[in-house]
Nucleic acid binder design. Structure first.
Lengths: 83, 83
DNA sequence: CTGGTTTATGATGCGGAGGCCATAATGGCG
DNA sequence: CGCCATTATGGCCTCCGCATCATAAACCAG
């Protein structure tokens, strides 16, 4: 369960997945992360380019972390190739 | 060469590393990414919470990508344990 | 030390992210 | 089908990230 991400939308997906996996509602996650439910909704749907700060708040609440790595293999998870 | 990140500062470091590794100056990276040199400086130093959009612009120019994963092993790269 | 490149700092102005409230749309479930 | 929980929209307002220009500080040859 590790998600590759190259766009804000990818991040949104990853967050939604993780949240569901943990059985949280947006409201619950909001409470745990200090980020508002409305904002979470937007982020999960890729609306608006989130601030890193907010992102990490969510990651902390979901017990996620990020790994920065070279784009070795071209789009191996076979989803987006938008540009 | 894959960097773990849990804070904006971590991201900044990763970017600086990657940039240096490619032998770019901030100015060059600025030209390639469309992000201003001054902004890159701030990001690399962890000043200000960057927008995801900007981040991905830089990642694209540096040929980097992100991986979202559970915080399995407790701080294995031995740097931050701030909270 | 001196000059040139690279990086950092500072100020201004605009646009957009997110806090916040209200409400609409959606989705089970009995 | 109505009812309640969950999620999505929209508006308002404040704050701050980034573009942009100018300049200072730090580095690094030579």
């Amino acid at each position: 369960m590790t998600q590759l991400a190259r766009t804000p939308k990818d991040i949104g997906h990853a967050i939604r997945e993780a949240r569901k996996a943990k059985g949280f509602t947006q409201k619950e996650l909001a409470a745990r992360s200090g980020v508002w439910q409305e904002t979470i909704s937007k982020i999960e749907n890729g609306v608006a380019s989130t601030k890193l700060e907010t992102l990490f708040d969510l990651f902390a609440a979901l017990d996620l972390e990020i790994q920065v790595q070279p784009r070795s293999k071209g789009s191996q998870s076979g989803l987006e190739d938008i540009f």
